[in-house]
Amino acid sequence: MSIIVDNLTHVYNSGTPHEQVALRNISLRIADGECVGIVGITGSGKSTLVQHFNGLLHPTTGSVHVDEIALTSQGTRKAHMIELRRRVGLLFQFPEAQLFAPTVYDDVAFGPRQLKLKDSEIRERVHTAMRAVALGDDATLLYRSPFALSGGQRRRVALAGVLAMRPRVLVLDEPSAGLDAEARDELYAQLLNLRVSEGLTIVLVSHDMGEVANLADTVFVLANGELRLSGPPEDVFQRVDDILSCGLLPPPLAQAVTLARERGYSVSPDLLTPERVAEALVQARQTHHDQAIAATPPAQETPHAS
């Protein structure tokens, strides 16, 4: 599914003394099957933006199109809203706080039950969703209380609840906040998997550039409610001054590459993994070394060796 945002402005508490412009004239496109990162500091407007993608918020002016469904200040037909909520799954920050059912099964099945599906279909969806978040191996898990699970497992149960609605777009707001390294890596692996196997469009919201560097095809950087930068991560991360002006830092690896280039290492600026940066640095040193030897005149011709 594609998402087209056209001149979107959102004003909270419009017409009151607490009026606050959260988004100004944002235009962007997310293609079907793409994974995009939306990056900005606290208060930059990133959560406000993605809450338009499933109709939780409506534009004050401008529009958002999710395939053929339009969201404008005029509102949206009820049938369209229902369809939109089915197609676009939104995982909030700390989604495990929203688990409520007595068992994991009931929690994941909650959404599908609202769709009035047959029990067999609901069961199938719960099992598929639990497998998708790598919690399908232990059948007893389904009948445990979600509150008896670890933090990382609870977050994955919350994600399974969203997946059981079979969305075509998955919007994740700070999905790794508060997770330990292992849980975070697992979550990312599952997201990549879903993208490949289901062709989901994925929108990742984060204040951490490094987090989106390895996952996103396109990065949008917001500051002060405005879209400041967009493009492939390897291009965006080179625009160091622009990133700093948005209150953000480029990922440490990108900073190291920028510094090394300033010091004359000829490494490509678009490398985003430690392996590739290491290879490139080793290569650049070798080349530099070879050139230095080639450029050094033979010893006897040096008039005054110091």
Binding site: D180, A181, E182, G210, P252, L253, P274, E275, V277, A278
Partner: peptide, 13 residues
């Protein structure tokens, strides 16, 4: 279960 920074991996490589 500590997060290994990418620069630590780069240094190791």
């Amino acid at each position: 279960r500590l997060v290994i920074p990418e620069l630590a991996e780069l240094g190791q490589r």
